[in-house]
Design a protein around this nucleic acid. Structure first.
Length: 453
RNA sequence: AGAGAGGUGGCAGAGUGGUCGAAUGCGACGGUUUCGAAAACCGUUAUACCGGCAACGGUAUCGGGGGUUCGAAUCCCCCCCUCUCUACCA
């Protein structure tokens, strides 16, 4: 096994050199340009909702660079075309034995070569500058997204279930796990470090039960189960947008230049990178269970006790890839699916529409689902369901053919269904009794027991 | 990990310096034929960028990157991947 090393959160790498990326890689992100160009006002208005301060300057710079790029491309193509023609002529002359004629043409060719080299270098530099800028511009929020700065400004869409009344002396989950000896943080610290708990006995079985329950529910809802790798390459990180934005949040294996996934969104969505998907296979619906790894750099404090925030945790993800017209309908079904899971688990929850400032970099619309953690007396985020529209698809080059043979970008979506640790926290806290922790009906068969004692 | 072989269009498979974006076969699509189908025959069959309202034209792409050359799928260097044998391992 190679060493796991952590890269600086401030380093910023762009995939030109070491990775196996084609020349056309730079062109991929260019597709986004049509939107920037044709709908500049809408884009700027959307980015304003995110408090993306440099939006106006960045967009203008990108468009300026684009003009420069296109004019260079035209010049370059013309010079190349002339050179190709001359090469053809030289070939003909050589064949007919006219060496002097061939030599005469080579003079012009040499000139052109120098010119082409100049254009090519400048073109590459321009493209690179443009791509770097484009990679830094976040997705444009959907019109329904409220403006806002932070979690304070998120909108509560609905609330469901009843918060339990806990008896006096009720314990937070970090006490309960000790009382029943089901999750051990100290052991995890010994073998790895803080934030890597060890699940034991009924705790381990509860984990396995939840994973199976979530996967079965997803399958019944029409999602195909996949088991992807949990280490991904750089291209995959760029594809779903974790790179370069969140580079410092991922564990990085420097020896092989691979990243431990922060969510199975990354490998599952990248399954469809560089694909033109036949229209009859749409929509794609995948589900998968993986462990997830997050450095959570800079996250400390009382809110992160116990299972609230971990470096490694388990999650079942649902992913959809749809035609553009269907993505918001798909988003609604995904939110409904997650709500059903929470209802079956008998957990009180609420649904939030995230404001522009709290939304992820790549998302156009995100609904967070939070469960009520009775002993902590606070809501815990257990799922985030997002529509990325064409933002990821653009980076992924994930397309389909429309009527008439033109290729068009698809829309990608994903949601947690569900992340385990906070579900476990809520289950433990909300269901504690003098006799033990009474698990909801749906889990009994999966666990092989109904009470944690 | 060591040795050898190889990576060409949706697939199979030619092509070892000059109109090669690439023969041929299969598949797919459209058409002719048929009451219908099969067969046969004819045609179409990649992606991206630039120019153009468009028709269309140009450029790039034969695993990836770089080099030699007037000209590279073809020659040279580096990297990635696949297969076979050996070693190792779950």
């Amino acid at each position: 096994m190679k060493n796991l090393t952590i890269i600086s959160p401030f380093s910023f790498s762009v995939p030109y050199s070491e990775f196996q990326l084609s020349k056309n890689y730079l062109c991929r992100i260019m597709l986004q340009l049509s939107v920037l160009k044709d709908q500049t006002e809408r884009v700027l208005a959307g980015l304003a909702k995110r408090n993306f301060k440099t939006a106006e300057a960045d967009v203008r710079a990108v468009l300026d660079l684009d003009q420069r790029r296109r004019s260079l491309q035209t010049q370059h193509d013309q010079a190349q075309s002339e050179a190709n023609e001359l090469a053809r002529q030289i070939g003909g002359l050589m064949k007919s034995g006219d060496k002097a004629g061939a030599e005469a043409l080579k003079v012009r060719t040499t000139e052109l070569k120098a010119q082409i080299k100049l254009h090519a270098d400048e073109l590459t530099a321009t493209e690179k500058a443009q791509t770097e800028l484009l990679y830094k511009i976040p997705n444009v929020p959907h019109e329904s997204v409220p403006a806002g700065r932070s979690a304070e400004d998120n909108e509560v869409v609905r609330e469901a279930g009843t918060k339990p009344e806990l008896a006096a002396g009720a314990l937070p989950h970090w006490e309960l796990i000790k009382k029943y000896d089901i999750i051990d943080f100290e052991l995890g610290i010994k073998i790895t470090g803080a934030g890597f708990p060890v699940y034991k006995g009924q705790g381990a079985r509860l984990q396995r039960a939840l994973v199976n329950f979530f996967l079965d529910e997803a399958r019944d809802a029409g999602y195909l189960e996949v088991q992807p790798p949990i280490l991904v390459n750089e291209a995959s990180g760029y594809g779903t947008g974790q790179l370069p934005d969140k580079e410092g949040q991922m564990y990085h294996d420097a020896a092989d230049n691979l990243y431990l996934i922060p969510t199975s969104e990354v490998p599952i969505t990248n399954l469809y990178r560089d694909e033109i998907i036949p229209v009859e296979k749409l929509p794609i619906r995948n589900t998968g269970y993986t462990p997830c790894f997050r450095r959570e750099a800079g996250s400390w404090g009382a809110d992160v006790r116990g299972l609230n925030r971990l470096h490694q945790f388990d999650k079942v993800e649902i992913v959809q890839i749809t035609q553009p017209d269907n993505s918001y309908a798909a988003h609604a079904t995904m939110v409904a699916h997650v709500e059903q899971l929470l209802q079956k688990l008998e957990l009180p929850y609420r649904v939030l529409r995230l404001c522009g400032g709290d939304m992820g970099f790549t998302s156009a619309l995100t609904y967070d689902l939070e469960v009520w953690s009775a002993a902590q007396g606070r809501w815990l985020e257990v799922s985030s369901v997002s529509n990325f529209e064409a933002f990821q698809a653009n980076r992924l080059k994930c397309r389909y053919k429309v009527e008439g043979g033109k290729t068009q970008l698809l829309h990608t979506l994903n949601g947690s269904a569900l992340a385990l640790p906070r579900i476990v926290a809520a289950l433990l806290e909300n269901n504690q009794t003098a006799e033990g922790i009474r698990l909801p009906q749906v889990l009994h068969a999966y666990c092989g027991f109904d009470t944690i004692k």
